[in-house]
Amino acid sequence: MCRRRDVSEPWTDPAGALDAVILAGGRGSRLGGRDKASIEVDGESLLRRAVDGARSAGCREVVVVGPPRAGWEEIVQVREEPAYGGPVAALAAALGRLRSEGVLLMAVDLRNAAGVARLLASLPRPRTGVVLVDGSGADQWLASRWRTEVLRGSLTGDHRDQALRRVLGAFEPDRVVVGDDLVRDIDTPADLEGP
């Protein structure tokens, strides 16, 4: 279980330690405005699957960015500024809560969050970051791993409505091609069907 610490408390982590940032603040417009984090797959909410997936990969701190949710005392919750300001603004909002050398960046709606987290955690420490790539060759920015210092040194200022591919792509991360099933997410009602 992640150990809770005050943000101002110094923390010396061994090299290779990881935190996780889970983005859970989208509007779910293609799902009729449903909160993706609360959607259940196999009897568990997507948020529970993502948090447990990060923990199964050994993440020390799990930071969830999105609207406040009751009953989640075991995680750190933050909100991007402004609300619904996009994924780069969400990542920037989480940076102050990270204490480990590396961070997994994941979407709340990954069907196989545990598999994504464990794969990313098992990879060698990247120079800047590593992004999983699906079978079509598309970078899956919300299934990635980063050196925290790289993000912290670059994500300052106003990042509302900026694209992750533009901001994170500038760090020239490594890429790992994986099967589509591993990085499958839930964007539409049809995505709720199947395994």
Rank of each mutant, 00 (worst) to 15 (best):
L91K: 01
A70D: 15
G66E: 03
L105P: 00
Y84C: 01
A107V: 01
C59M: 11
E73F: 05
R55K: 13
V63Y: 07
G71Q: 07
A90L: 03
S56D: 12
R48V: 15
A93R: 04
G102M: 10
P68L: 12
E80I: 03
L105R: 00
S100A: 15
I75N: 08
A113E: 07
A107M: 00
V103H: 08
V62D: 08
E61G: 13
V64I: 11
E44Y: 13
N112H: 09
V88M: 02
A113C: 09
R111S: 01
G66H: 05
R69L: 15
W72M: 10
V78A: 09
G86V: 00
A92N: 01
P67S: 14
P67V: 11
R48S: 15
R49N: 13
L95E: 02
L104G: 07
E44P: 04
G86N: 02
E44C: 14
C59L: 10
G96Y: 04
A90Y: 02
D109N: 15
V62P: 03
V62A: 12
R111W: 04
L104R: 05
G85H: 00
V76N: 03
P68A: 13
A92V: 00
L95D: 02
G66D: 03
V108N: 04
S56R: 15
R49G: 11
R97D: 06
L110E: 01
N112R: 14
V108P: 05
E73V: 10
V63L: 10
G96K: 03
V65D: 03
L46K: 09
S56F: 08
R99E: 11
R55F: 13
V103I: 11
E73T: 13
V88S: 02
V62L: 12
R60E: 15
G53D: 08
E74H: 14
A70E: 15
E81Y: 02
G86S: 03
V51M: 14
Q77C: 08
V64T: 08
V76A: 10
L46N: 08
E81G: 00
V64D: 04
S45H: 08
A114H: 04
V76R: 15
A83P: 11
R97M: 10
V78P: 01
G85R: 02
S56V: 09
D52P: 03
A89Y: 00
A70H: 14
G58Q: 10
V76E: 07
L105I: 07
A107G: 12
